[in-house]
């Protein structure tokens, strides 16, 4: 393992910003894994730390096949992580809206360019990312429909779900999109949480990546093969929305099966304690996404269900 500073900015008073990379093996640039680009992506950082630990063991045991280089970047934004701020500390810009970056541009454009320049030629790219709404997810591999996406390859992770979604205007400046444009096989992996540690889904992500690499002939790993992934189109999921704001009291968790009509959550009047709304399952399904904050706004999709048909 070789530990490298991939990108550095000198600060006025803070310690210098150093984006650290951990390289394993030598040869073709095979796999790059990137953890948090935002300051609240703690689970994403944790999963990468577990991957660094695991690849260190694999390398010592000679189980990374010759001719393959693997790079892990646990975070590209330690400055924001250290002050518990989601976006860049000084101007609140999002590094994941700056790719492919510009080396003579503004600070986050430079960081994006500095990193992307070193990771754009990898054969496979994996990013642990997060959703803009607070909530927990069923672990899955997510891909944008760019025309370059390879769904069959995504299934090789053996995660329970592969989710495909349409691109939106802002996607063109994300890492995942630009990786795909540069012909990297790019995948976003969602584990259950973002701002708290969930060991179970983190370990699932580690196993999934090792399973994928074993199938691609990159590492020697004989673990559980994982799931036969179900492919889900994002827009086919059924949202369950609140009609009113208030205190949110969920009755089901991510991963649970629900039947049509089952009570999924209640909203409570924050002054008087009365139930103001009972949210029920509109279909038989599995809870794929669940809001995880104590308050909710009206019109919020607090659950997303994958339809189950018997």
């Amino acid at each position: 393992m070789e530990k490298k500073v991939l990108y550095e900015i000198k600060a006025l008073y803070r310690d210098d910003l150093r984006v650290m990379g951990y390289e394993f093996g030598e040869g073709e640039e095979t796999l790059c894994i990137l953890g948090s680009l935002r300051g609240n992506e703690v689970q994403q950082l944790y999963v990468c730390s577990q991957l660094v630990k695991r690849f260190t063991e694999l390398e010592k045991q000679g189980r990374i096949h010759a001719g393959h280089k693997i790079l892990i970047i646990p975070t590209a934004n330690p400055y924001s992580v250290n002050i518990k701020k989601r976006f860049w500390p000084t101007d609140n810009t999002d590094i994941n809206r700056m790719f492919p970056g510009y080396d003579l541009g503004e600070t986050t454009q430079r960081i994006a360019a500095g990193i992307f320049d070193q990771i754009k030629n990898y054969k496979y790219g994996i990013q642990f990312t997060s959703f803009y709404m607070p909530g927990n997810f069923e672990p899955h591999v997510r891909m944008m429909k760019t025309g370059f996406e390879d769904v069959e390859m995504a299934k090789r992770f053996g995660m329970p779900y592969v989710v495909i979604r349409e691109t939106r205007p802002y996607d063109t400046t994300t890492l995942n999109y630009n990786w795909q444009i540069w012909e990297t096989h790019a995948f976003s992996i969602y584990t259950t949480t973002t701002e708290s540690i969930d060991k179970e889904s983190a370990q699932m992500a580690v196993r999934s990546i090792l399973t994928f690499l074993a199938k691609e002939g990159v590492v020697d790993y004989k673990g559980h093969d994982g799931y036969l992934s179900q492919v889900v189109i994002d827009t086919d999921m059924v949202p369950v929305r609140t009609k009113v704001s208030g205190i949110f009291e969920p009755k089901v968790k991510v991963g649970e099966e629900v039947v049509k009509g089952q009570v999924m959550a209640e909203t409570i009047d924050p002054y008087e304690g009365n139930v103001t709304e009972v949210l029920t399952a509109p279909v038989d399904g599995m809870v794929f996404f669940a809001h995880n904050e104590p308050l909710t706004y009206a019109n919020t999709a607090v659950f997303k269900l994958v339809i189950r048909e018997e």
Binding site: I9, K10, A11, L12, T90, D91, G105, E106, T107, R110
Partner: peptide
């Protein structure tokens, strides 16, 4: 006044 490298 506070700038990072790259600030406009």
């Amino acid at each position: 006044p506070v700038v990072d490298a790259g600030s406009l």
